[in-house]
Design a binder for these strands. Structure first.
Lengths: 216, 216
DNA sequence: GTCTATAGACGGATAGAC
DNA sequence: GTCTATCCGTCTATAGAC
C-alpha cells in the first residue's frame, strides 16, 4: 500500500485482490466464487491472484482466518474476562459484536455458515475451538453462579449464552425479511441495531430473574 | 416408490436422487455440491440425474422450493392467524419451528443462507416475500397493540418478532460451539431444544413487560 | 510486477447401446 | 429406465514475454 500526494491511498494489486476476495467470499462462500470474479472486481489480471496468493484455496483460507479472528478474539477476551461482573460483560459483548457487524454486514452469516459446516478434524477449526473453549467455560460458570444467587436451578446456563449470541447474530442475517414488507428500510434497520445495544443486555438479564422463570 | 415384501420400501432411482440431493444441497448449498456427489450418494448413475431432473439447477430449485415451503407456510398460517391471542400464537410458532428443525437440523442454516443472499428480482423469492408479507404485518400489528396495552412505546415491534425468530433459529446453527467445550453432547442438545419450546414464549413475553423495559 | 496465452483438470450434460 | 463413454464449456493455475 503506497501513499501518494493529497493523502489519497492507492492500493497495491495485492491489497485490491484481498479486499475483493474478502467481500466476495464473505458474501457467497468459497465454492460460489470464481477466481475470475475476484480478478474482475479488483480490476487486476487473473494471473496476479496466483502470483500473490498461490491458489484460490490459500487465498480463501487467509480471508477466512482473518474473518474469524475478530470473532474468536471477542470470545476469548470478552467471555473469558474474570474481573468484570456478568452484566458489564454482557454489555461489552453486545457492543463489541454489534459494532463489528454494522461495519461488516455479511460477517454474521459467514460465521454462522463456517460454524455450522464445521466437521471435526480440520486443523484450523480445531485450533479455533480449543482457543474459545476456556473463555466459554468461564462465561458459563459465571452465568451458573448468577442463576444460583437468584435461586434458579431450572435453567441451563447454555441457554443464556446461546440466547445472547442469537439476539446479536440473527438479525443481521434476516434484514431482508424485515425490509420486504414490514416498512423498514436500510436506515431504520441500522437504528434498530443500535437500539439493540441497549436492549439486549436488559432482555438477557431479565431471563435470569425468578419472576420470568417461575411465571405460570 | 415401490413397496416390496416384508413392508420394506425400495426407493425408486428418482426418489433416491432427490433425497441425496436434498441432504447435500441443504448442508452445503448449490455451488459446493457436484452432480457426481449426488449420484454417488444415491448409488445411481450420473446420467439418471439429468434424465429425471433435466439439470442440476432445476433439481436445486425443486429442493429449495420444498425446503422453503414449511417455513413459508408456517409464517403465513401461524403469524397471519387473526383469531389467536399473542401468547398462544408465540407458543404455537415456537413449537412448530423447533419440532421442524429437530427433524431437519440443517434447515435453519439453509433458510438463513437463502434469506441472507436474496437479491430482489428473483421470481421465486419475490413470490416468497409477497406471500409472507401480510402475515408479517398481522403479527407486527398484534405486538404493537400488546405493547400499547402495556404502556410501552419505547420499543419497536420488529424487535420482538426478530427476537422470536433469533431464539428459534440460531441455536440450531451453532450447536458445534456448545458441543466443543461446554460439555454438551448430542443428546443434551436435543433436550435443551425441547426445553426451549417452553422457555422461549416466557422470554419473549417478558420482553414486553414494563419492568424489563424501564429498568435502570 | 504485470500481462497474454494456454495448459490441464473438472464438471455438467448428452448420445447412444442395452 | 439404466448404463458407458464422451463431449465441451468452464475454471484454476502456470509458462513465458515484457
Amino acid at each position: 500500500m503506497t501513499k501518494i500526494k493529497n493523502n489519497i491511498v492507492k492500493l497495491s494489486a495485492e491489497e485490491k485482490i484481498k479486499r475483493s476476495a474478502r467481500e466476495l467470499f464473505t458474501q457467497k462462500g468459497f465454492a460460489a466464487i470464481k477466481t475470475r470474479d475476484i480478478a474482475e472486481k479488483a480490476g487486476i489480471n487473473l494471473a496476479l491472484l496466483n502470483y500473490y496468493f498461490r491458489s484460490k484455496q490459500k487465498l480463501y483460507d487467509l480471508i477466512m482466518e482473518e474473518n474469524m479472528v475478530a470473532f474468536r478474539n471477542g470470545i476469548i477476551q470478552l467471555f473469558g474476562n474474570t474481573q468484570m461482573n456478568l452484566e458489564q460483560k454482557i454489555e461489552n459483548i453486545v457492543q463489541y459484536y454489534i459494532d463489528a457487524f454494522l461495519e461488516n454486514r455479511d460477517l454474521p452469516a459467514f460465521i454462522i455458515s463456517v460454524i455450522h459446516q464445521h466437521q471435526h478434524g480440520n486443523v484450523i477449526d480445531n485450533k479455533f475451538y480449543t482457543a474459545i473453549g476456556n473463555a466459554q467455560k468461564v462465561f458459563l460458570e459465571q452465568i451458573k453462579t448468577h442463576l444460583q444467587n437468584k435461586g434458579i436451578n431450572s435453567i441451563h446456563p447454555a441457554h443464556i449464552m446461546t440466547n445472547l449470541m442469537s439476539l446479536i447474530f440473527f438479525p443481521f442475517t434476516s434484514s431482508n425479511i424485515l425490509k420486504s414488507r414490514a416498512g423498514i428500510n436500510e436506515q431504520d434497520f441500522i437504528e434498530l441495531m443500535i437500539e439493540r445495544k441497549k436492549m439486549i443486555p436488559l432482555w438477557i438479564m431479565s431471563m435470569m430473574e425468578p419472576t420470568v422463570n417461575f411465571k405460570k
